[in-house]
Simulated scan of single mutants.
Amino acid sequence: MKRIYKVVATVLLAISANSTFAQQNVQFSQYVFNGLAVNPAYAGYKEEWTAQVLYRTQWVNLPGAPKTGTLSIDGLTDFNRKNMGLGFQVTTDQLGPQKTFSAYANYSYRLRLDEYDTKRLCFGLGLGISQYSLTGDDLTYIDLDDQGIPVGTQSTMSPDLRFGVYYYSPNFYAGASVMDLFADYMATKLQGVDATFPVIKKTRHYYVTAGGLIQLNEKISWKPSFLVKDDFNGPTNLDLTSFLAYDNKVWLGASWRTGIKLWGQDHLKSNLRMADAYSILAQFYVSDRFRVGYAYDHSLNDLSSYEDGSHEISLSFSIPSRKRAEKVLSPRYF
């Protein structure tokens, strides 16, 4: 009955890894430099108020492909004890006719673990709200009387809660977080849209990440990291990333993204292609406070024949504070 042409490829690909029609969380290749997007306990890590903007255009030249933008700022509330961090983040995401806008406030309580204050264990909470909308005019269909296609734009809003734990030292970090804690209790469809039209259904997401910094010589260091994401419906998603840095100013790296089967996921099809994409990444510290980053992704699945890769650019700037001008700030590489 329903035949959607303009965005059918994009929508099917977005949900193909799931046994339900789930709205997946946004994806960033530069997750190492965008910690607040995957863990609220990251707030205040740099110990200076830091603003960041990131824009990602995915699957270039594929109609209806995802486009994501995010703006965040985080820092400390007390530069003496440094035991509380705050972070604010807004994100917009568009997938074909479906749009999402979200805003979060994040709080982190930071426990000092050593005399020299080089190690901290942080616990974070994030509280936010998301607006989901679907524009029926952006769909192309042949049945003009199809009641499953909304007229105009339909939207709904729902709250969300996040929780995370984050540990760091000068040369290592590790974190775990859970997103969309209210997923099981919120409305899962747009207002006014027929219940048989599966557009919005949030699922709870779990993240585990870790990385390190290894000094190879006086000028060159190595920064490996990984990110695991799971919603217990589709394959577990794994990002493996490796950077080489020269003088801690120019960072060049690569990333491999793939699905893996964990937790006895017997419901998944045996012939799923797990390899997702590889990424080429570059980061340049214009100064100690200003960073520019870029990532290019190339798909490794059937989608590669229809699109021209994905591009992601980010900028961040740390704001100096007079209150801590006389204190030495340890370098922050995560």
Rank of each mutant, 00 (worst) to 15 (best):
N217K: 07
K219E: 09
K229V: 12
A245F: 06
S242W: 08
F226I: 07
K229G: 11
N233V: 09
K223M: 13
L216C: 07
P235A: 14
D231Q: 07
D231G: 02
T236L: 04
A245N: 12
T241E: 12
F226S: 05
L244V: 14
N233W: 01
S221P: 04
I220M: 12
F243W: 06
A245R: 05
F226L: 12
T236A: 10
P235V: 12
T241M: 14
S225C: 15
S225R: 11
A245Q: 11
T241Y: 05
D231F: 00
D230G: 10
N217M: 11
P224L: 09
N217C: 12
T236D: 02
D231L: 00
L216T: 10
N233C: 01
L216I: 14
K229F: 10
P224K: 04
V228A: 02
E218M: 08
F243R: 00
N217H: 10
L238R: 00
D231S: 03
V228R: 00
T236M: 10
D239Y: 14
D231E: 07
K223A: 13
N237P: 00
N217W: 11
D230M: 06
N217V: 11
S242G: 14
V228S: 01
F226R: 00
S225Y: 14
P224Y: 08
D231C: 01
I220D: 05
N233D: 12
F243V: 04
S225F: 14
